[in-house]
Design a protein around this nucleic acid. Sequence first.
DNA 1: AAAACGGGGAC
DNA 2: GTCCCAGTTTT
Length: 357
Amino acid sequence: MYYQYKKQFQQALVEWYKREKRDLPWRRTCDPYKIWVSEVMLQQTRVDTVIPYYERFLSEFPTLQHLADAEEEKLLKQWEGLGYYSRARNLQAGVREVVENYNSLVPDNRSEISKLKGVGPYTAGAVLSIAYNKAEHAVDGNVMRVLSRVLLIEEDIALPKTKKTFENAVMELIDPMHPSEFNQGLMELGATICTPTSPKCLLCPVREFCTAFNEGQPENLPIKTKKVKMKHIPYDVFVIKNTIGQFLVEKRPAKGLLANMWQFPMVEQVGNADTTNETKLAEQYNLNLLSREKLTSFKHIFSHLTWHIESYSIGCEEQAKLPGNCQWFTAEEMANLPMPVPMQKVWQSYKIETTSL
DNA sequence: AAAACGGGGAC
DNA sequence: GTCCCAGTTTT
């Protein structure tokens, strides 16, 4: 973009942003910690979803120190339902690094802040520009969409190396006097005007600078090729209650899918027979099963795989020897355990089934 | 470079 | 159903 147009573009974007920006909770503060929390929550997650989590999280952990001191169970409980739970663990690890190594001051330069756990190129640039007003790139999906249209960039955004093109473009275009408003303006534009489908070009403050609007078809940008192949896994899930009213739950492994989250015992379905899976359950968990009743069936879609859940209610004698990751809890105790959404659905189904008796 | 990693909303 | 969302880490 020619130099004289660049300054006009910056001014048009920044003035539009100042005028039209949505009133969001994290826009009422410059506290780097709070900006950091908001940016992590917003990764791959919509604004409307984040707002209630953000408010609750910061009232529970108002400072770096509060979060650094938190128990993981309590942290995950706050994150429950938001997804990508490693974000929460990484955020806490990063916060602990800041408390221990940076005197509780979030670093204000890219090389240091990028070393923090969970802080990638985007989050680094977002915190630096928004909290510290540094002229740093913060390239997310919105920015790639907006700039692919404005600058008619036709590289495949599914390829990792393409990100560099957009980071360079931002550094070339960014308003050095208003980095925070410039970066947020690009994202706000992508979220509200320059949307994936049917962009509202007639309302766009920078359409006169937009190559795709003037020459091409904005709706066909950006170009993205990658498609994911979904795996499907059928599971039987069991809500198991012993004779003194406790329920059996297990903690998932510390790595991988839904790490350290709690769940009801589940076994992968092998055939379409029903008794084989129950036998497998009794063996795996060393249980003496008494009764059984069908609960809800549904499918739960993750980003890369689908669980097909069938759930059952089981009565059972209490056993002395349980696998190490298993524990009996009362319903009240269970309420404090972080559980993923599919397990909450099963539990909800159980409660409805039993209260109707 | 590709896959893993949640959940939900919009079309 | 598909896409994608204020992405990062691991393989």
